[in-house]
Simulated scan of single mutants.
Amino acid sequence: MSTTAAGNATGIHAASTNLTGAARSPKTLPGVPRWAELAAQAAAWANVPSGLWRLAIAVGIPVGLAQVEYDRMHAPGWGSFYLLFLTALSEGLALLTLGLIRQWGETWPRFIPFVGGRPVSVKVATGLGAFGAVATTIYGAAFIYSTFHADMEGARWAIWLLNATYAPMILWGPALGAVTVHYYQRRTRGARGEL
C-alpha cells in the first residue's frame, strides 16, 4: 500500500470517528457533536419497545394482560388497526429527529414534490421540534403519573413488561429538545439574520 493510500485510509477512518474513537454514522453531518448524535438516536429509538408491545397485542400475541384489557382495546380485531396506526405514526415522528443531524434536515430530499432540493426553513424545523419536545415531555410525565395510578388487570409480569416497554419514551422529549436547540444553534451560527 502506498503512503498516499495509507494516508487516505487513515483520513477516512478519522472522519468516521470522534475524538474518543467511537464510530459515527456516515450520514451524520460534519460539525454535529457526538452527544447530539446520541440524543437524536435515543429519541428515534425510544418508541421501538412500546411499538413492539402494541404490535404484539394487535396480532394476538399474549402479553399477560387480562382478557378485559384486550376487550377494551378491541384487539385483536378492529382495534388492531388503531394500534398499528399509532405505532407507525409515533415511530415515524420519532425518526424525524434524525433529520436534525442529517442532510435531509437542512435540504429537502429531491423526491419530495414542490420543495425537493430547497433548504429546510430553520424556523419551521425548530418550531416543530420544540413543539414535539414539549408534547413528548408532557406525555412522558403523564406516563410516569399513570404508572403509579393505572388500574390495569393482568399478571404482575405483564404490568412490569408494559412499564418497561414504555419507560424509554421518557427520554424522547428531553432528547428531542436538546437536539432541536443544537440544530438551531448550528444552522444559525454565522447567519443570524437569515432565519
Rank of each mutant, 00 (worst) to 15 (best):
residue 51 G to Y: 09
residue 134 V to C: 01
residue 46 A to T: 13
residue 45 W to A: 10
residue 12 I to W: 09
residue 160 W to G: 15
residue 87 T to W: 06
residue 143 F to P: 07
residue 63 V to R: 00
residue 97 T to A: 11
residue 182 H to R: 13
residue 6 A to R: 10
residue 94 A to C: 02
residue 32 V to Y: 01
residue 154 G to K: 03
residue 79 G to N: 07
residue 171 L to I: 14
residue 53 W to L: 14
residue 73 M to Q: 12
residue 72 R to A: 13
residue 90 S to E: 11
residue 124 V to F: 10
residue 166 Y to C: 07
residue 8 N to M: 12
residue 99 G to Q: 03
residue 26 P to S: 11
residue 180 T to E: 10
residue 102 R to H: 10
residue 10 T to F: 14
residue 146 S to D: 04
residue 29 L to V: 00
residue 145 Y to N: 07
residue 146 S to L: 10
residue 77 G to C: 02
residue 121 S to I: 01
residue 159 I to L: 14
residue 68 V to K: 03
residue 41 Q to Y: 01
residue 55 L to Q: 05
residue 130 A to G: 07
residue 161 L to R: 00
residue 65 L to H: 11
residue 179 V to G: 10
residue 102 R to I: 07
residue 171 L to V: 15
residue 20 T to H: 13
residue 171 L to F: 08
residue 87 T to C: 12
residue 133 A to P: 08
residue 63 V to H: 03
residue 71 D to W: 07
residue 145 Y to C: 07
residue 26 P to Y: 11
residue 171 L to K: 09
residue 53 W to V: 14
residue 102 R to A: 02
residue 57 I to Q: 05
residue 4 T to L: 14
residue 190 G to Y: 00
residue 79 G to T: 11
residue 171 L to D: 12
residue 36 A to C: 00
residue 90 S to C: 08
residue 133 A to C: 04
residue 9 A to E: 09
residue 91 E to G: 08
residue 111 F to A: 02
residue 16 S to Q: 15
residue 23 A to P: 09
residue 6 A to M: 09
residue 81 F to S: 06
residue 132 G to A: 02
residue 141 A to P: 02
residue 113 P to S: 04
residue 8 N to K: 14
residue 57 I to S: 06
residue 139 Y to F: 15
residue 189 R to G: 08
residue 19 L to K: 11
residue 79 G to C: 05
residue 119 P to N: 06
residue 108 W to F: 03
residue 89 L to Q: 04
residue 158 A to I: 07
residue 165 T to I: 08
residue 83 L to W: 04
residue 164 A to P: 06
residue 56 A to Y: 01
residue 25 S to L: 03
residue 20 T to M: 15
residue 68 V to Y: 02
residue 148 F to T: 03
residue 153 E to G: 08
residue 67 Q to Y: 09
residue 42 A to Q: 11
residue 172 W to D: 14
residue 170 I to P: 08
residue 42 A to V: 02
residue 99 G to E: 02
residue 106 E to Q: 15
residue 119 P to K: 01
residue 136 T to K: 15
residue 139 Y to S: 14
residue 105 G to V: 01
residue 140 G to F: 07
residue 7 G to M: 15
residue 33 P to H: 02
residue 116 G to H: 13
residue 35 W to G: 05
residue 174 P to T: 12
residue 146 S to R: 05
residue 96 L to G: 07
residue 150 A to M: 12
residue 176 L to A: 15
residue 28 T to W: 11
residue 81 F to G: 00
residue 31 G to Y: 04
residue 52 L to C: 10
residue 173 G to C: 04
residue 100 L to G: 04
residue 184 Y to T: 13
residue 183 Y to W: 07
residue 22 A to N: 01
